[in-house]
Amino acid sequence: MNSGYFKHIIRFIVLVLFQILILNNIKLNGYLNPYFYVLFILLLPFETPRWLLLLSAFLLGFSVDMFENTMGINIAACVLMAYLRPYVIRFVASKQDYEPGLEPCIRDLGFTWFISYSLILVFIHHFAMFYIEVFRFSEFLTTFYRVLGSTVFTMVLIIMSQYLFYRPRK
């Protein structure tokens, strides 16, 4: 179990660094920006206690906010996403039982399951974050395009990463 914690801590650090040093400098079209770091919340194991889920999401948002100078925005979006995660998991496959030891990734639960699971959560995160950042409804539609565009961008990166680091089960 200890090595399991270690893996997630490393993943946390790598994703935050990747986000702030590389992805935040990608300016596709001038306003689309992928927020790939949410992959950390997606990949936490099913057995994670709920309080740990929320606290690690808080810490994740806090570290990204610190470097982006947008104190609070990523925190709010990440905590919301982590709060809704158990409900989304139940919603996506209500009949199927999740066997212990399985991880939420393409390898263990298949492509369709992973896509619907991560698409819903990534959309929730992006939606919350972009609207909190703009903080007014007068630019509703343009913000919505940014949400959709960035969601697609993030999803492409998440799926790519799933196949890039694919290791068959021993």
Binding site: L54, F58, M71, G72, I75, A76, V79
Partner: peptide
């Protein structure tokens, strides 16, 4: 219902941070 209240608590912290930041008071 600790899950919900912890969620609420963390979101309140985030909101306080956002509001402070939005009015450009030196955070």
């Amino acid at each position: 219902n600790y899950f919900f209240f912890l969620f609420l608590f963390l979101e309140i912290i985030a909101t306080v941070l956002i509001v402070n930041n939005n009015y450009f008071q030196r955070s």
